[in-house]
Amino acid sequence: MKMNTIVSELSMNDLNNKFFEIMQNEDNAVEAANFIYESVIEDVTLGFLFEFHHGLKTGLTDLIEGEKEEEDLYKIVNTTECDVFGFSIMKKTPDSNCSCPNCERPVSATRFAPHLEKCMGMGRNSSRIASRRIASNSREPTSYAGLLSDDEDDADWAGGSLHTERRKRRIKNNNNRKSNKLHNGNRNNNGHQNSDSNDGGATYESMSANEKKNLLLQICGVVSEHTKKLCTRSIRCPQHTEEQRRALRNSVLEPSTPESQTMGLTAEEAGSPPDSSPSSSCSSSSRKRDRHRAPPKIKNKRERNMSPNGRD
C-alpha cells in the first residue's frame, strides 16, 4: 500500500520516548503548551472562517437568511400596564365560544372545563349526566323529550337564537340568577335542539306504571314549578328535597304497590352528598375551594420516583 511510503522513520515508541525526554525540560514544556494553545485557537478561527466562506461562496448564507420579516408588528410592548402583546393587565380577556369536541355544542370558553367534566361523565357530576343520558336514551315507548325540565343552570351551553327569547323569560322568573352566565345569545344554533324545544303535552298521566317506575329509578322526577317539567337530575339531586321526591313518588305511583316503597327507600338510602347544600352545590363557583388540591399520592418509600410507572 502506498501509505507505507509516507510513514516517517520515527516509530510510535520512538515518538513517545522523545516526547517525555523533551518535556523534562520546563522551558520546552511551556513552549509546547503555548504551541498547542495557539494551534487550537488557530484551528477554531480557521473553522469559523471556513464556515463563513462556505456560506458566502455557495450562496447558502443568502438562502438561509432570506428576507427578514418586518419585526415592528411583533415588537414586545414594554410598559407596566400591559402584557407583552399590549393588552392591559387590568382587563379580562373577552370570552369566546368553542365547540365542545365531545357533544359538539358551542360552549363558553371560560366554562369549558367544568362543562367537559360533566359532558364526559367525569368527576362528581358524572352520575347526574349519566342519568340524563339514560333518560334521553330510553325514549321508547314514550318520548320524554318535552317533559324534561331545563331549570338547572346549564348556561355553559350558550343558547341558540331560537331559545333566546324563552330563556330570557325564564331568567326573569329565576330572579336573574343566571343573567351573567349567558354568552353570545345570538350565536347560530347549529340545528341541534335542546330537549325542551318542543313543548309537548306529555306528563306522568300519559305514562304506564312501568314507564313511570323505570323513569323514576333514574331521575329525581320532581315537577318544576316554573316549567311544569320533570327534573332530570339524579335521584340525589340537591335542587329538590327528599320530601319532594317522596311526595312525588307517592302521588305518581300507586301508593300501595311495593315498588313505590322500594323507590322511596332507594332515594333515601342514596342520600345527598354530605357537602352539598341545596342552595349552592350546583353553581360551579362554590366548588372553588376544592380546586388545585394536589391529589393524595400513595406513600411508598420504595417508589420515591414512581412517575413513569404503569406505562409500557
Binding site: 367544568p114 367537559l116 367534566e117 367525569m122 368527576g123 376544592d290 380546586r291 388540591r293 394536589a294 391529589p295
Partner: peptide, 10 residues
C-alpha cells in the same frame, strides 16, 4: 378525575 382535583405535576 375531572378538573377539580388537578395537580400540575400529575
Amino acid at each position: 378525575a375531572g378538573y377539580e382535583q388537578q395537580d400540575a405535576h400529575e
